Amino acid sequence: MDRRTFLSSSFAASTLSLAAAGDLLAQTEPAANISAPEYMDLRRYHLASGPGVKLTTDFFADALIPALNRLGIGPVGAFSVYFGPDSPSYYLLMPSLKIETLVTADLELANDDLFLKAAAPFWDAPAATPPFIRIESTLLRAFPGYPKVTPPASASAKGKRIYHLRQYQSPTNMDHVRKVEMFHNGEFGIFAKAGATGVFYADALVGPNLPNLTYMLSFPDMTSLEADWEKFSADPDWKKLSADSRFNLNPPTVSNVTSLVLHPLACSQV
């Protein structure tokens, strides 16, 4: 593969990666098992220590998540940063099969009387004392081979769990395509075999640091996270896949990795 190949735009690259992955999946999976990929809005609420943290927590639990569910968005994940930069920060994961539902959600919330009443302390906070510093949003589309947000079994019982949120940035669009193909050539299964529960795997369509992909894994605790990553790294199938000449390139297909460990908030549905 000529590494100088560069597609005209990062959005086009994401579309190509989905198409390529879909073709690959169609060769190995019955058509009946292929579902339409979900879209996701992954938001980061950059907070400041103080009363705004509780105000945002209450806003998520009492106003935002119930209103998003009424729009058909869910299950909604809500997380605090356990290990990572820019703390305090909250992350919100909003999945939907309809992209229009996600991109118009804030406009629709403004027409929801139940939401407006419950959200008033957050939405109507004085400009001099806002509950957050800034909100950043990334639009994602799930990989064809892992088309739905899949909460771990412990989420429904509000059991103990943590999440590993990772982003792989690629130096070129074609490198991004190759990395997506790598997931569809076995990486999903290797994670599962190691004990890591996949929550989602997705292309970034709109947002910073393009081209990139983002995925989330769930573990019972930090001890399990560390042990399962060691199992993944030592797995013979991973060693074989990572040595494949299609993916083992120099320079590598991933130029930068961001990695966060998140705790679910009490209101999280993931």
Rank of each mutant, 00 (worst) to 15 (best):
P131I: 14
T214P: 03
I133E: 14
V254G: 10
L93V: 15
A36P: 06
N212V: 11
G159F: 05
F232R: 03
P208W: 13
K148S: 04
A26Q: 15
S137A: 14
N33E: 15
R141N: 06
P66Y: 01
S154C: 10
R3W: 00
I99W: 05
D112Y: 07
F60L: 09
S156P: 04
L140D: 03
C267F: 11
G50Q: 09
A120F: 12
F188I: 04
C267L: 08
L24I: 00
F59K: 12
F6L: 12
E108A: 01
A127H: 12
S8I: 06
A153I: 05
I65D: 02
S218Q: 07
L205R: 14
S245L: 10
S245R: 13
N209I: 07
E100N: 02
D237R: 01
K148F: 07
S10Y: 10
D62L: 14
R161Y: 04
Y82A: 02
T150I: 02
A12K: 13
S218L: 06
E38W: 10
V53M: 08
S245F: 05
A196K: 03
P37C: 02
A155D: 09
R4D: 15
S233N: 11
A153N: 03
G50H: 07
V177F: 14
L114Y: 08
A48N: 08
R134T: 13
N248L: 15
S224L: 01
S35L: 15
W229D: 04
Y215T: 04
F122A: 02
H184K: 00
R246P: 00
F115T: 00
A153H: 04
N185D: 09
D58F: 05
A61V: 00
A19H: 06
L42A: 06
V180Y: 02
Y163Q: 09
L64H: 08
T197H: 13
W238H: 07
L68W: 13
P88T: 11
P126H: 12
G22H: 14
A153D: 04
V53H: 10
S259N: 14
F183C: 10
A67Q: 09
I133D: 14
Q269S: 03
V206L: 15
P66A: 00
G159H: 05
S9T: 15
L205Y: 15
Y163C: 06
F188W: 04
M174P: 01
H184R: 01
G84D: 03
L64Y: 10
F6D: 10
A153K: 06
T214H: 07
Y91P: 09
Y163M: 08
M94R: 07
F11H: 07
P88S: 11
V199S: 03
R43M: 07
P121E: 15
G22A: 13
K148M: 07
N33G: 11
S218C: 07
